[in-house]
């Protein structure tokens, strides 16, 4: 029983990490219908720039803010590239994001380096002891921050005018334009928000997993799975998908074999795509695909 509890707790910790990455996919998809495959690299950019700003001697707080700003600028650059693209079919734009991801990875290798980096945990290295297992302060912080982001995103999309305009823009661009919505502004804001969420994720993750130029590849993939499993387009979907994925992985590693752990993500992904193509919280937009 205590074993099961330990596996679940570990699964929830990892699940919230996937959720943080998955949320970024959700936001961009929500407004543009594009799946942004450089999301994982945004996470990397957030973590790596924080680490190097700290190396440069800046205090933690200033480094966080600057890193978040830098990453949101990268998000806006990606949007600019997309808006310059002559071929605006979704497939070619998605490929563009993939290319941008590879570009960012290369850039990070040149600007930073190829080493692993970490930074001190800002809530202390300690951990809560629960039964025979433990939950580190940093993991708890990730859970709290991820939940806060999910709730504020939900409120933003549902309750604010700007948020509703974003949803409208993704449902029907032309109709939204006719309603006087400034699509360009909406999209810029969206890419920036998504990059901000990613960079917060990158910053929170670094004390636990450490970071390097290629940390975004697997995180991006797992976050993508989380977003698809939960249903693209809703923040709660990313939570459900992330947690389901994290817990399943942990249970498989605990009870079956750690060899099969990584396969779980992709088996679940396939199963969801076959039987619930819209994801667990799938909504109308999935039908458009």
């Amino acid at each position: 029983m205590i074993e099961l509890f330990g596996y679940l707790l570990s699964g929830v910790t990892v699940g919230f990490i996937y959720t943080l990455v998955g949320l970024g996919f959700t936001v961009i998809y929500n407004s543009s219908g594009i799946i942004n495959f450089s999301q994982g690299e945004f996470v990397m950019a957030g973590g790596m720039s924080t680490v190097f700003l700290i190396y440069a001697g800046l205090p933690l707080g200033v480094a966080f803010v600057l890193a978040i700003l830098i990453t949101s600028m990268i998000g806006i650059v990606l949007y600019k590239l997309i808006s310059f693209s002559r071929d605006s079919s979704q497939i070619s734009l998605i490929i563009l994001t993939l290319g941008f991801a590879i570009f960012l990875r290369g850039l990070a290798q040149i600007i930073f380096d190829k080493q692993l980096h970490t930074m001190p945990s800002f809530v202390g290295e300690g951990a809560f002891e629960i039964f025979e297992t433990t939950l580190s302060y940093q993991a708890l912080l990730i859970m709290v921050v991820a939940s806060a982001i999910v709730i504020s995103l939900y409120l933003f999309f549902q309750k604010t005018k700007t948020g509703q305009a974003m949803v409208a823009a993704s449902n029907n661009v032309d109709a939204a334009k006719l309603m006087g919505i400034n699509i360009k502004k909406i999209l810029i804001l969206n890419f920036a928000i998504s990059a901000v969420i990613a960079s917060i994720g990158g910053i929170l993750l670094t004390p636990i997993t450490s970071t390097s130029y290629e940390v975004g590849i697997m995180l991006g993939l797992k976050g993508f799975c989380a977003a698809i499993i939960g249903g693209l387009g809703t923040p709660f979907g990313a939570v459900a998908g992330g947690l389901l994925l994290g817990i399943l992985e942990s249970l498989v590693a605990g009870y079956i074999s750690s060899e099969y752990k990584d396969a779980v993500a992709f088996v679940v992904l396939l199963a969801i795509l076959f039987f619930m193509p819209g994801g667990i919280f799938g909504n109308l937009k999935s039908q458009r695909v």
Binding site: E3, Y7, L9, S10, I217, L219, G254
Partner: peptide, 20 residues
Amino acid sequence: DETYGKKDSDMTSQLLKIKN
């Protein structure tokens, strides 16, 4: 005899198994 993926962020499950 446990393994983990090289990009994994938490190895608690495998280690719990070893601990027990």
